[in-house]
Amino acid sequence: MKQVLILRPNQQAAELRDLLQQRAASAGIRLQSENASMLRIRSYDDPSQRVADVLEAQWDGAMMVSVNAANFFAEQVHAWAPGQTMKPCRWFAVGPVSARAIVAVINRPVVCPWREHNSDALLALPELQQVEGQRWLIIRGHGGRELFADTLRARGAEVHYLEVYERVPQLPSAATMSDWRQRIDTIMVSSAEQLGAFLAAVPQDALDWLAECTWVVASTRLQQLLPAAISKRVMIADSAASFAMVDAWHRALQLTEES
């Protein structure tokens, strides 16, 4: 029986687990999956920005980096600026999952890359090539990545952040880690933060277990974050979307059976 560990919070992992079970059943594969989050997400009050000021400002473009960004932004608008709406601007997202979450919050169209769903693909969109003199807003977690903002600034844009959530480590117990080492043969991860927290929690003597696991990751960047010693069996999904992760898992399984 295949035993899969999904490094995602419960709400975000539910769809992936369902799709995994459906694919496994259709292929005649016995599978058990579970999910765990290495991080607890909580609201963050950005000391450098007021939500009301962000809503009142005029932006040429904006993006929310994740579903969490969309959800916590919506909470803060409801709490601190009820009834206030944002001025129209162009909205962008890395992929369709976060795009749907953003649409639910702002009720406006959101553009995202079509084939690959990552920052590089987003930055390659024609709409983002000529941004000199524009004002951009990035809604994100506290201390998030700088790639998108740095690239826009290099292209001449003025970039501002609104940080609406923060990540707090939520590490597994020694008993849980021991149980995983006995059972889990596949690990699926779509977040660099989840991966980093997980690897930090794993004891040194468990590296042999990780090296024997099949890894399904959402991007080349995540593959590059895996230590060389445990990156022998890695399948890269087209995106973090659940269907893409399941497709990658199935490809990895087929390669294992052929070898």
Rank of each mutant, 00 (worst) to 15 (best):
L137V: 01
M63V: 09
A174S: 11
S119R: 05
L7D: 05
T186V: 15
M1A: 15
G156V: 01
D46H: 10
A149M: 06
G83T: 02
S37W: 08
F243A: 15
L7R: 06
P126A: 12
Q3D: 13
G95Y: 01
S48M: 01
I106P: 02
A27H: 10
G143M: 08
L20D: 00
Q182R: 15
R181D: 13
V234C: 07
K87F: 00
S191G: 08
S190I: 05
L199N: 09
S26P: 02
G141L: 04
A69V: 05
W249E: 01
L123A: 05
R251M: 02
W209C: 05
G133K: 09
F72C: 03
F198L: 03
L55S: 07
G143L: 09
S178I: 00
I138E: 06
Q3S: 12
G156F: 12
S119K: 03
R135I: 03
R135P: 04
M86D: 06
A149F: 09
E146V: 09
N10S: 15
E34N: 08
L7N: 02
Q170P: 01
E56Y: 11
R108L: 10
R167D: 07
C112G: 08
L122N: 05
A14C: 02
R145D: 12
A240P: 02
R8N: 09
V168H: 11
K2N: 14
L195Q: 07
I29G: 09
S259K: 15
